[in-house]
Design a binder for these strands. Structure first.
Ligand code: SF4
Ligand code: SF4
Lengths: 140, 140
DNA sequence: CGGATAAAAGACTCTTTTATCTGATTGAAA
DNA sequence: TTTCAATCAGATAAAAGAGTCTTTTATCCG
């Protein structure tokens, strides 16, 4: 609805990593994939992006895997979203016009301001820690 | 972002029809397609759905075309959206889980309530007339 | 009335994007 | 040096979007 499937997977995976893996321990991608029922190779690609973005850190070989590269309170939802889907934007016209004309807006433009602002705030200000505070997510 | 391309096309087309065609006159789909730069055959499919939904009424043959079947104040945005994309829903979990657990929600669930409610209100309560009141939409 | 024509409806095919799967490569640990 | 697990390259599948062509139905014009 608002996030792409990749983005949803990314968020779910990060929550899993933060909750299930101790700071110094690696999470095997295979495990994450199995538990969260996310296609393995699709997940690897997503996690690679998160690693490139400096959100995760990965290790090959035995006991390898992936873990957080920073404290949950230093990871913004925004970073996760943009790491996975660099095009993501809330600026676009709700009717798909190329540039949004703030000067002479249509009614929908106007109505869309409020929810858009909320969404921008959620994505821009929520940290991984905020998400973790409200405990167990079902299926995890 | 929130609407599919088909839905955006549908809304733009309906606005065009309402503004450019007199009550008893038909709008040629070819014209709409040309003016709004919407692929012709893609648009016909969308408009067919709107016709099936009773929002538009169509006529074949010379001077045929499409026009509103009801007054703009009796056409809810919701109807347009659902006519084109019957699956559309704002109920879904923002993280893509199958059923949303209201009992023990995660933080995102909670944060998502506000914008979701706004969006539901926009879609559920806005009529075509509300959209038309705020005059000219650019590129139309 | 009867054929020419205009325009929507419908059936297919093609392209692009998003999502998923298969298999080979690399590197770390044991 | 074997083994485990991430990485990387590529093919395939599914969905959304766009294009081609045929059929149907209404008007027009003689
Ligand atoms: S005014 Fe309306 S149509 Fe124009 S860019 Fe803004 S939302 Fe889109
Ligand atoms: S609580 Fe969170 S994860 Fe669970 S259904 Fe609601 S939004 Fe989705």
């Amino acid at each position: 609805m608002i996030f792409t499937k990749s983005t949803k997977y990314a968020i779910r995976a990060i929550i899993f990593i933060a909750e299930r893996c101790e700071a110094k321990e690696n999470c095997s991608i295979r495990d994450i994939s199995g538990t969260l029922e996310i296609p393995f190779h699709f997940l690897t690609k997503i996690l690679q992006k998160l690693t490139e973005a400096g959100i995760l850190i990965s290790a090959k070989g035995t006991h390898g895997g992936v873990r957080l590269n920073r404290e949950p309170e230093d990871i913004l939802l925004k970073e996760i979203v943009h790491a996975v889907d660099s095009e993501y934007s809330t600026e676009e016209c709700i009717l798909g016009f190329p540039q949004c004309d703030e000067k002479n807006p249509c009614a929908l433009h106007y109505m869309w301001q409020e929810p858009r602002r909320y969404i921008e705030r959620i994505i821009g200000e929520t940290t991984l820690n905020d998400i973790l505070k409200n405990n167990e997510i079902h299926k995890l």
